[in-house]
Design a protein around this nucleic acid. Structure first.
Lengths: 142, 142
DNA sequence: GATACAAGCTACAGCAGATAGAGGTTCAAG
DNA sequence: CTTGAACCTCTATCTGCTGTAGCTTGTATC
């Protein structure tokens, strides 16, 4: 049986945040000791780790909730999971692309910036271009 | 001269959000028409695009502010830019790794889930493991 | 020039996702 | 059986937006 602080340490989640996740129904209500303290199983830790990693990757709590619901009801059809997966896949690929461009530029900066002026640092340029993100919103505009 | 709605359309940013960025000092105060409407230059659009892309990649407004400040003061030493770059690089690499694991699993799901039960879907497992993220927080715990 | 109406304005409320602090209680090691 | 870290609830605050109300401006058309 794990205390809330153990989950906190092992997932890098603030104790308050774990309680918050319980409050909004993302985490199941934890069992309690006679004195009222929360106690968890390994599976709760796994669930929390999943939530945290998903958050770090930019999933909303609602998306995460969807995925957790699927996991909680393993007998239902996979069609919904598939639709969720498809919805996320394109986004994930886009994020990887941008992060790789950014990584390249950050590396170049770290390698080259040794007292030079910032005029040589092109981090801003690498994320400035918006030609490739037009599909995500209204289009080419004026 | 571009109206706020044009910036909004071309960067996929809500009009209110642009005004919010001005309010908190991320965007420069825009010039105004005689009637009080904001008018922008191309450079403002670039700046906004940079902010949005950075946000999509998970940078905080404070991080973005730092980078923009560097860009606004190109004559200062690159040492700070380098430190910021280093700070972000590791994080970016971690994110790419996780996103790639997730992408792989999402692809597998889309390919394989054709009416099977969710028991076969391992999206949760792929993000469950927390062994590789221990360096980011307090360590191994109890 | 008059008119229509989309797009702009300010001001303020509300939401998502936490995070912090006050003030008090529990539990386990010594 | 004490002590102190870790737990509890409750409430307030923060970040990063987003929405609404009520009003004004700018442009296109008659």
């Amino acid at each position: 049986m794990l205390a809330i602080g153990t989950l906190s340490r092992r997932t890098g989640t603030k104790v308050q945040t774990i309680r918050y996740y319980e409050e909004i129904g993302l985490m199941n209500e934890a069992g309690r000791t006679a004195g009222g303290q929360r106690r968890y199983f390994e599976k709760d830790l796994d669930r929390l780790a999943f939530i945290r990693h998903s958050r770090q990757l930019g999933f909303s709590l609602d998306s995460i909730r969807e995925l957790l619901d699927l996991s909680d009801n393993p007998s239902q059809s996979c069609a919904e999971a598939d639709s969720i997966a498809r919805r996320q896949l394109h986004q994930v690929e886009q994020r990887i692309k941008r992060l790789q461009a950014l990584k390249k530029e950050l590396k170049r900066m770290v390698a080259e910036c040794d007292g030079d002026s910032v005029a040589e640092c092109k981090v801003l340029e690498v994320l400035r271009d918006h030609a490739e993100c037009l599909t995500e919103h209204d289009g080419i505009g004026a």
